[in-house]
Nucleic acid binder design. Structure first.
Lengths: 228, 228
DNA sequence: CTTGAACCTTTCAGCCGATGTAAGTGTTTT
DNA sequence: AAAACACTTACATCGGCTGAAAGGTTCAAG
């Protein structure tokens, strides 16, 4: 079933939410430690994230932004901060829903179910700057158009999206393409990278693949230098 | 730019909405006649539909259901009926948003922009019972999975989705496949239909292709008899 | 039951796109 | 300048999609 992750620091509220969703039949994971929140959330492999804004040490806004940048998970912001400014900010960051506490159980469940339905079948979408990639079929959505990438180009792009802004070694890329790091033909990887770069350029994508000589590659914003 | 269709019978409200969205830079089309509403909406080829529930002669719910069944357009329900029952109903029919009048301009615009962003690149999605088809790449979304159909199968399915529950003649199907009705090989169409049926069965889709002997074909619900 | 028309299924060869190999060209570093 | 690494292009191979062909099945009328 569709797992829901709850990020809420107030214990009372958290338990109440857990109960509501468990009664409705969803498996629930609660986040209670706030370091590496994004990683913790992704570990739980949820279908939806319920997010508070006021959290100890970190802003829910930040989590929302990161999640939306890395994935295509539905994010429902549930907070007691009833300010138009916050609502606009959350929506601007790509939150799918903004509800204020207290919130009627029915409304919460209805919005949740609605979101889950709308994201149906889209569980394999990964997000990049200005585009989405279906990591199953390698269908690319960009500029209101869609294209199916050849499997190898899709696999490579998917790997880069799983490690945004990070360096990706050739070994990782080879493993993604052929499942093994043995007997890798460096050149075959080269060729596939070239082809991916070419289609990315043709589609005028906002990100490009940078070469880090001797180490590997990295997906970075168009025209970026290598800060960090 | 992204066109917005407004379906609202109260003239004052309608003009106000039109002004809000036009000032924000969206082209706007208002529906003022309520026969064939769905067709009128689709004619305008909008990117988003703003829908009132209380309409003369027809329920906004009905329009919402039809739109969601035929297309993957975002629908924002904006109504003065502030009842939980209505909200749940609208959400259940697949509405993407339910706002009550009066509504602050900022909130309305933020939710609209948010929806448009989330639907980015998905303009070519057509909906069927329990699945979505990207009519550009013929990527099929179903059961939380996705597949790329071979072009011919995709074209056929897209034609059927454009005529839900209606009879589709062989000529139409041939035209969709080969662009001409001249020199059609009935058999080639046969074979492609067989292949589409096979994949639909393999994917356990809820709709099947019925043969109407002597006339053509029709996409119908699984196990349906031919009530009109 | 027979018959013919319409429809369906299977098989097979041709074609096109994706892929890896190979060979040659650039670029950076020492 | 030379070596190491990175990139590009061309080409043969392979697999999946497609339409042709041939044979089988269903349906309705007589």
């Amino acid at each position: 079933m569709k797992r829901i992750v709850i990020v809420e620091d107030e214990p009372f509220m958290r338990d109440e939410l857990r109960e509501i969703f468990e009664k409705a039949g969803y498996p629930v994971t609660c986040i209670e430690e706030y370091d590496q929140v994004t990683e913790r959330i992704l570990e739980a492999a949820p279908s939806l994230v319920l997010l508070d804004i006021n959290l100890p040490g970190i802003s829910g806004f930040e989590i929302c932004r990161t999640l939306k940048r890395k994935t295509a998970l539905p994010v429902l912001v549930l907070t007691s901060r009833d300010q138009m400014k916050d609502e606009l900010h959350a929506l601007d960051l790509g939150a799918d829903e903004y509800l204020t506490k207290p919130c009627r159980k029915e409304r919460l469940l209805a919005r949740t179910a609605n979101l889950l339905r709308r994201y149906e079948g889209r569980g394999h979408l990964r997000g990049g700057e200005g585009f989405l990639l279906d990591s199953q079929t390698y269908t690319l959505y960009i500029h209101d158009q869609s294209f199916v990438l050849p499997p190898n180009q899709g696999k490579l792009l998917a790997v880069f999206l799983a490690h945004p802004d990070e360096l990706v070694t050739k070994e990782v890329l080879c493993t993604a393409l052929w499942g093994t790091t043995e007997y890798i033909d460096e050149n075959a990887l080269q060729v596939n990278l070239t082809r991916l770069k070419k289609t990315m350029k043709e589609l005028a994508m906002q990100q490009r693949i940078e070469t880090v000589r001797g180490l590997g590659y990295r997906l970075a914003a168009e025209g970026a230098t290598d800060e960090v």
